[in-house]
Simulated scan of single mutants.
Amino acid sequence: MNIFIGSSNSSESLKALRQIALIIEEEGHVPIPWNKPGLFPLGNYVLDSLRDISLKVDAAVLIFNEDDRSWYRNDSVLQPRDNVVLEYGLFVSQLGREKTIICRRGNTKVPSDLNGIIYCDLNKEFKAQSVLVEWLQFLKARKIN
């Protein structure tokens, strides 16, 4: 299976992206990180490229990291980069919820519509790895393509 991995460009997010890519590879699948050369060709519109990618991959992992500080109800909160949240919605609409997952690092504020989603907690590294492996095995067993 080809699995897209989306994140921000922050060093913490890219570190998580590499760790997730290694787990995907170890399970015999092909990680497709957003920063893979050639994935976003020059002259293309980013959203069109993302839609094309969503049609070619079997699953997607989006990393929600504490990237941006914003104000919410008179308090400062950390939230994932807006484009990563948008990409989650795009991949869910194309692939479905069971093939598109969120991995969260830190205590990120997420949009209220996403509050009920069960996510992979990257703060607990060992558990995160086992949860990701379990998800990959589930996809393989269901032969989701």
Results as ranks from 00 to 15, higher is better:
118 I>R: 00
29 H>Q: 10
39 L>P: 10
9 N>K: 11
21 A>N: 03
52 D>I: 10
105 R>N: 07
51 R>L: 15
67 D>T: 00
135 W>P: 06
32 I>P: 13
27 E>S: 05
86 L>K: 04
33 P>S: 07
139 L>G: 14
89 G>W: 03
20 I>G: 02
26 E>R: 15
4 F>W: 08
141 A>T: 04
112 S>W: 00
141 A>C: 04
63 I>M: 02
136 L>P: 11
23 I>W: 13
102 I>S: 05
14 L>G: 06
27 E>W: 03
21 A>Q: 02
18 R>T: 00
71 W>V: 03
133 V>K: 14
61 V>Q: 07
125 E>Y: 15
102 I>E: 06
103 C>I: 01
139 L>A: 14
93 S>P: 04
139 L>K: 08
63 I>D: 03
20 I>E: 06
122 L>K: 06
18 R>A: 00
29 H>M: 10
113 D>E: 13
46 V>W: 08
42 L>W: 15
131 V>G: 04
56 K>W: 11
137 Q>N: 10
133 V>E: 12
105 R>V: 04
32 I>D: 12
19 Q>R: 05
139 L>C: 13
97 R>G: 12
119 Y>D: 10
113 D>W: 07
41 P>M: 01
12 E>Y: 13
31 P>I: 06
57 V>S: 06
68 D>E: 07
68 D>T: 10
140 K>G: 07
110 V>P: 02
118 I>G: 05
58 D>E: 15
56 K>C: 09
70 S>E: 04
109 K>L: 11
38 G>K: 04
21 A>S: 07
17 L>R: 08
24 I>W: 13
20 I>P: 00
32 I>R: 15
34 W>M: 08
99 K>C: 09
25 E>A: 01
88 Y>V: 05
21 A>D: 02
100 T>K: 07
59 A>Y: 00
37 P>D: 10
138 F>V: 11
75 D>N: 14
